[in-house]
């Protein structure tokens, strides 16, 4: 088993500049998190807003710098604060964002969207770029004829497929997915989750999957990291975590997640009936 990405004690501070009446302060958004993801595996990072999960995602995706700790991609330490990552390194890690309406340029045809990573990072000739882009469109479940269409001609689910296709153009080993299905309808969400599973198998991809939705995490993750206020409060395999959550915050998350279990509904309906009868 080869480890694709490894983080040791990752820290991120944000500096809030002071003003006349307010002293400057430092907010530690990520407070020393360690993790590792192997090829073909999915690490889900779960947390609520303000937990630092997206900050961590952007550090792993080499978009933002960390303030401390060590990040290794395929065994090589990398710190974008000190050194610009090589094209090769950039190609290995790609990101998919939450909002497929915001992450595609409305003026760019989707064929160009898909070819751009190749244009910027490789010396592949134009005809080959086009061939690969068309091939990738088909892989994510869109017809190659859609090559010349603009993003507004696609639904949210189709756009997310395009964003995933773009992320895969450079044959990455790691995809960082920041809430990739949160903006999608349930039926479309199922399709995109299925697609992500298929692609993971085909390309032996490692996923870092950011989500607030425990039912999605349970479906897709191998390992889970629960974040709260910048700290990893619990880490473990999916089976361990879902069978016996240890940390109080994890338990709170579980308790707050609505469930569609028929027995639970039956109990609730009976409670409501009893209460009404008592009120009359």
């Amino acid at each position: 088993m080869s480890v694709v990405v490894e983080g040791k004690n990752i820290i991120r501070d944000y500096h809030i500049p002071g003003s006349l009446l307010r002293p400057a302060k430092t907010v530690r958004a990520v407070k020393g998190i360690s993790f590792s993801v192997e090829r073909g595996k999915t690490l889900a990072i779960v947390g609520e807003s303000g937990s630092g999960k997206s900050t961590l995602a952007r550090i792993i995706a080499l978009i933002d710098q960390s303030s401390g700790g060590e990040l290794k991609i395929e065994g090589k330490p990398i710190d974008i604060a000190k050194q610009k990552p090589s094209r090769d390194m950039r190609s290995k890690v790609q990101m998919v964002f939450q909002n497929p309406y915001g992450s595609l340029n409305p003026r760019q045809k989707i064929g160009d969207v898909l070819m751009e990573p190749l244009l910027l990072n490789t010396d592949i000739p134009a005809a080959e770029r086009r061939r690969r882009a068309e091939e990738m469109l088909v892989k994510v479940g869109l017809p190659a004829e859609h090559f010349n269409r603009y993003p507004h001609m696609f639904s949210g689910g189709q756009r997310q497929r395009i964003a995933i296709a773009r992320a895969l153009m450079l044959n990455p080993t790691l995809l960082v997915l920041d809430e990739p299905v949160s903006a999608l309808d349930l039926s479309v969400q199922a399709q995109v989750l299925n697609l992500l599973r298929d692609l993971q198998e085909e390309f032996n991809l490692a996923y870092v999957f950011i989500s607030h939705d425990l039912s999605v995490v349970r479906y897709i993750a191998d390992d889970v990291l629960v974040m709260n206020k910048g700290e990893a409060v619990e880490q473990g395999t999916r089976e361990e975590l879902f069978a016996a959550p240890k940390h109080p915050y994890t338990r709170e998350l579980f308790a707050a997640t609505p469930i569609t279990d028929v027995e639970a509904i039956r109990e609730r309906v009976a409670r409501r009936k009893a209460m009404r009868a008592a009120a009359v």
Binding site: S187, L193, N194, R197, S215, R218, I220
Partner: peptide, 13 residues
């Protein structure tokens, strides 16, 4: 299509 109702590897859509 609810992920918690997934049976096996794929979600029915």
């Amino acid at each position: 299509a609810l992920p918690e109702n997934a049976t096996g590897d794929r979600l029915p859509t």
